[in-house]
Every structure is written in structure tokens, then in C-alpha cells.
Amino acid sequence: MVIDEQIVKDCIAGKRQAQRLLFDTFAPLMLGVCMRYCRDRDEAEDILQEGFIKVFQNIHSFRGEGSLAGWIKRVIVNHAINYINKRNKIVRHEKIDEIRETEILDMNEPIEFPDEYNPALLLKLIQELPVGYRTVFNLHIFEDYGHKEIAAALGISENTSKTQLFKARRWLKNKIEENRQKKNLK
């Protein structure tokens, strides 16, 4: 579905049909984004709803210079961050200094993944991450945020952001390794 300028204008005017069209077009992709930030689908749909309300409230500020999907994604991600900041206490006391050098070296070792990567499994692993790890991992991997930007967005230090990212990777690596071993045993 192509969203043209007229639909955006209709959305600005508050026309429900246009809003429905916009929602139907972008909601599946945006729900995928929300799913990465939440533990379950219900929570993701809550964020999606509130996020789209913000989209419709602020669509007048979309100037059409970039892609509409990118703009909507940014609004949804910002809302997800706010939602997480309000509802969860992100661990902020960890410092990169606390991580032993050996652990960092471990991360550079190759990880063997199954030949066929199951997206559902990977999403499940992300959802099982502790909220702090998950948020930093998502922002860094999927939204291309730098540690400075993550730190500003979440109100944490850069070092904490680095720590969280490192731990998230290590946690995921361990989980993938466990799954691989289980599969081999079978």
C-alpha cells in the first residue's frame, strides 16, 4: 500500500479512514519493532496503540523530507523508550570497568549458530533478556544508536550502556549455545 501525500493530509485533518489506512499499512512492521522492546505481545500492542496515537497527534510535524515509515518508527521507538523508562528501573550502577578482560576476549570467540536461523527463536531470546539489556541491545543493534545517544535517551552513563550491551550479547550467546547443545543432544 502506497501512502501518498493526500493520506497524510487527511490524517492531519483527523479523518478516520485515512488513519485506518495508515495504521493498516504500518502497524505490522511497527508491531515487530514493539515486540523487540517488550516481553509479550499484549504489552507490545499497548505500546503500538499509544505510539500510533502519538503518530496521529504529531503527524503535522512530518515534513515529508524523509520516509514516513522511518518517521513513524522513530515516534514508536521514542514512545517505547518512554514506556520502558516509566515502567522499569534500568540497572544503572554497572560500569564497564567491572567486566573482566577475559570476558571481553570470550566475546570475540566464534559462535556457532544453527544453519537455519529461526527468527521466532531469536525474537524470543531478545524478549527474555532483562529489560535493561534488551533496551540497550535494541537501540544499538536495530536503531543504530551510539552509546552516547543511548545514554542520553535512557538517562544512564555511556559506560553503563556499554556494559548492558556487552552483557546482552553474552547472555544471548550463552542462550544460543545452550539451544545448539540441546539440539545436538536430540
Partner: peptide, 21 residues
Amino acid sequence: FDDLFRESIGKQEFTPSPGVW
């Protein structure tokens, strides 16, 4: 490692429940 996640679930889509709209 990062690309694995980006490519696998970076553009993953889910159909929202009918009640969402």
C-alpha cells in the same frame, strides 16, 4: 552476531490483533 539479529528480525512483521484498531 549483530547482523544475524538485524537480518532475521529487523524487518519482522506481525499482524496486530483485530481489537487493537
